[in-house]
Simulated assay, not measured.
Amino acid sequence: MVVWRKGPKKPARPYVAPPEVELPPVSHAVEDGLLIAKSWASLEVKNWIVVRALRDGADYDPEATAAAVRAELDRMAAEQEGYAERVGEERQAAFQKRGNAKHQHDYRAGDLSALSRRRSVYAGLADALVDARNDDEFVAELAETARERAWEDIARALEANLDRVAAEPVVDESYRRARAQRLRWLRDIDLARLIEDHVADEKAARKAERSDKKSEKQRDKKSGPNPDAGASVNADPAGADPVDESAGKPVDRQAGRGAAR
């Protein structure tokens, strides 16, 4: 019976805490949020320009576009202020809570620092959006970016529409009168060409088939007849006496020769 014995326990390695990650300052997070908000505002204003041009047939108006940019910035600033207020309320509710969280939105006292930072980012981004809304140069740059993106979409739609219109024939009286001539061209030119191509393909296929058969016959001739074909099963290549199949005995060649004399 084999008895397994446990060896000596290896000494446990001392626990080494991971290095602390230094969070970037709140100002960096606000700058990143402002860049994202700028891109989103440009997209919203671009859609507004496209809808206004294609649906309403309105020309581009710089003042109306600048007003649309400011309205979008105001909307996003109010949204960030609402987020800051909500996080502040959640921080107050989490101040008296202890223990482990039950889900990701169950904030406890250990989350106060993260909630404070989050509230500062929301509030800072709201202030930055308000400042951008009052900056005429920022608004003009964002409006120009939205106009260029809108023109790219409109130009793409116009090109597709022109291609579709150019592909459709204009049906008028002369088009109807020329219908008989077009049908004759279809019969005498297009269909005749298709028939010629089909006949040429069939001839090429038959020629290839005959060539294959001819090559196969030539290979059979070069290989020659089978030397064992047609040989008698009772013939002896060494000159032995043949066997009389009816009697099952060998035939005497000398006796046969004397009888012939």
Rank of each mutant, 00 (worst) to 15 (best):
W48A: 12
R118C: 03
A132S: 14
G57Q: 10
E141I: 00
R119P: 00
R117W: 05
S113Y: 04
R52C: 08
Y60N: 09
D136G: 12
A123V: 00
K102N: 10
L112Y: 08
V51E: 13
A64Q: 13
L73I: 03
A58V: 10
S116N: 14
Q80I: 00
E85F: 04
G124D: 07
A128N: 07
R91K: 14
G99C: 06
V51F: 08
R108I: 05
D59A: 15
I36A: 15
A101E: 10
D59Y: 07
W48I: 05
A143V: 05
R117Y: 09
D106E: 06
R133W: 02
Y83R: 12
R55M: 08
L129T: 07
Y107V: 04
S120R: 14
S39I: 03
D74Q: 11
A140N: 09
R108D: 05
E90K: 15
G110P: 01
K102G: 09
P62A: 15
A84G: 15
V69S: 01
L115E: 05
V30W: 01
D136V: 08
Y122G: 00
V30G: 04
L34G: 06
Y107T: 01
G124F: 01
K38A: 13
P62Q: 11
G57K: 11
D74R: 12
I36E: 15
G124W: 03
R98M: 12
R98S: 15
A123N: 08
D136N: 11
L35W: 10
E44V: 13
V45C: 04
V139A: 07
V139Q: 04
N47C: 03
E148S: 13
W40L: 12
F138G: 02
L129P: 03
L43G: 13
A132K: 00
A53W: 07
G88I: 00
A66M: 07
L115V: 09
D111I: 09
A71Q: 11
R86Y: 13
R117M: 09
R118V: 03
A132W: 03
M76G: 06
H103K: 08
Y83I: 04
A41S: 12
G88N: 13
Q96T: 15
A109I: 11
A94F: 04
A126Y: 01
D61Y: 08
S116T: 14
R133A: 11
D131W: 04
V69W: 01
V87L: 13
L142K: 02
A93F: 06
Y83T: 05
N100W: 11
L35A: 14
F95R: 15
Y60V: 08
T65W: 03
R86Q: 12
D127L: 11
A94M: 06
E72F: 04
E144I: 01
W40V: 13
